[in-house]
């Protein structure tokens, strides 16, 4: 079954909702998911069952999700059912308590090849979840865990950390270290709305499992595409980028390989229709 059909099926509707119904689509300043929008969505659609799986990550991604203070209560009580997770819902999985079926599994963290429990959990998630989302850069690109060389407590043998897409099929990715609260809210609302146009970049990004600040040099500057706008340096979450003579300059000691600089670059991919829609142009 196609991904679109699966999403539509688990969301319990057939046709794409009328996009023009969005009340404030013409208001340029309001690009976030507004409360009214969230409430409207909550009323109209069945609640998807969401699981949150925590592998080798710092919990920053789920904290970012919880920073959607104004919509969080609504999100957790009326929009989605959190059916699995140690942090958001106190649900653990073992031999006696099977992992529940999920419509969407948010997987935070990369997976450690020496950690049998993590490997086992990831495989089980893939079986139980209709959609697997690499949530945050560790899960999507490996991010900071790419630097691991093992030899540390509490388990010196834990050495090799890879993005989850190296082991299982990933349906979409939300890179970020962490992803912003806004992109998480926008993604959840788009998912519930079945707004496939908005989600397309996340689906495409599921294929980006290697990232580094040097992508700007090899994929943008080297390709005669850089225009020195500074978006990459603005987006960098660890201040690893500066602009020198109109070109990004990377401090490799600070780069965590999250991929956000290249993802935000207007010359890597360009969502023209979505931007125009959001601006009312």
């Amino acid at each position: 079954m196609s991904l679109i059909a699966r999403i539509k099926q688990f969301l319990g509707f057939e046709a794409k909702p009328d996009k023009e119904a969005k009340p404030d689509s013409a208001k340029s300043a309001d690009t976030g998911a507004s409360k009214q929008e969230v409430e409207k969505v909550a009323e109209e659609n069945a609640k998807p069952r969401i699981g949150y799986i925590h592998l080798s990550g710092c919990t920053g991604d789920i904290i970012s999700l919880s920073e959607n203070y104004d919509i969080l209560a609504e999100l957790l009580t009326n929009m989605v059912d959190i059916v699995y997770g140690h942090t958001l819902a106190d649900v653990w999985w073992d031999d006696e308590n099977p992992m529940p079926e999920m419509d969407l599994a948010l997987v935070e963290g990369s997976v450690c090849l020496q950690d049998e429990h993590s490997l086992h959990e990831l495989m089980e998630v893939r079986k139980k979840a209709a959609m697997v989302c690499a949530f945050g850069s560790c899960s999507a690109t490996g991010c900071f865990t790419r630097f691991s060389r093992g030899g540390q407590q509490a388990q010196p043998a834990h050495e090799s950390f890879v993005p989850i897409a190296d082991l299982v099929k990933v349906d979409c990715a939300i890179p970020g270290c962490p992803p912003s609260p806004e992109i998480i809210a926008k993604t959840v609302v788009a998912l519930i709305n079945g707004d496939m146009d908005y989600l397309q970049p996340m689906i495409d990004l599921a294929g980006m499992t290697e990232a580094c600040g040097c992508d700007l040099q090899t994929k943008v500057v080297n390709q005669a595409l850089c225009i020195g706008c500074g978006t990459c340096a603005m987006a960098c979450q660890t201040r690893a980028l500066d602009m020198t003579d109109g070109r990004p300059e990377l401090n490799t000691d600070r780069c965590v390989k999250c991929g956000v600089c290249y993802v935000q670059c207007p010359r890597s991919w360009w969502p023209e229709e979505q931007v125009k829609k959001d601006l009312g142009l």
Binding site: E67, P178, S180, V263
Partner: peptide, 13 residues
């Protein structure tokens, strides 16, 4: 660059 960030603020909070 600014408009893309507003529509898709992946790492920009």
């Amino acid at each position: 660059g600014i408009r893309k960030m507003q529509s898709y603020p992946f790492g920009v909070r």
